[in-house]
Design a protein around this nucleic acid. Sequence first.
DNA 1: AACTCGGGGCA
DNA 2: TGCCCAGAGTT
Length: 220
Amino acid sequence: MLNKSQVQYCLDVMKEMYPQAQCELDHANPFELLIAVVLSAQCTDNLVNKVTSSLFQKYTTPEDYLAVPLEELQQDIKSIGLYRNKSKNIRKLCQMLIDDYGGEVPKTKQELMKLAGVGRKTANVVASVAFNEPAIAVDTHVERVAKRLGICRWKDSVLEVEQTLMRKVTKDEWADTHHRMIFFGRYYCTAKNPQCSECPLLTLCREGQKRMKKKNAAKT
DNA sequence: AACTCGGGGCA
DNA sequence: TGCCCAGAGTT
């Protein structure tokens, strides 16, 4: 298992691999961030980014999403997939924000998870990025990367992965951790056919070492 | 833990 | 074509 300084090294390397143009979502206000992350479920980020720029011009408050017919909102987000569920969820979510939170986005992940269409991952992203709350978002990419590198155990649950990460990452980088690991997992440490031989973290990667050994054995 | 939801991207 | 995707909700 990787110790704290090794994990820190991994995150430093991932930071350098991360493109200059940081995720625009970082700079959005909490409400826009929340909407964007809810929309991003099960579709790629650049697909969502295509929609959000025009979406956030048209809709700026929870009331705005409720002011138009459902069909109009569906049309506006149609191109990202799952738009029927997502548009309904967003309206439900906005209604809850108005009714229960005075139109503001709640700050803790416990409150965020009560909202429609907001699960553990979305709640953690919004809480940590927008409000600097103690949380690290874990999705399939983060989980895979953490397990391959040896940050946590293979059989750890999502919750255990999250807790291990919070133990091994310094507090002021919690908000950034999921962006780096997700990007690394999406474009380098891919689920299928990861290019381990070109990976800068190969020397300390548990799974990478195993794969390279296998590859060499197959050659000879 | 397993299943469903589903449009677009990509090979 | 067929498979996959920065998940969440329900059973």
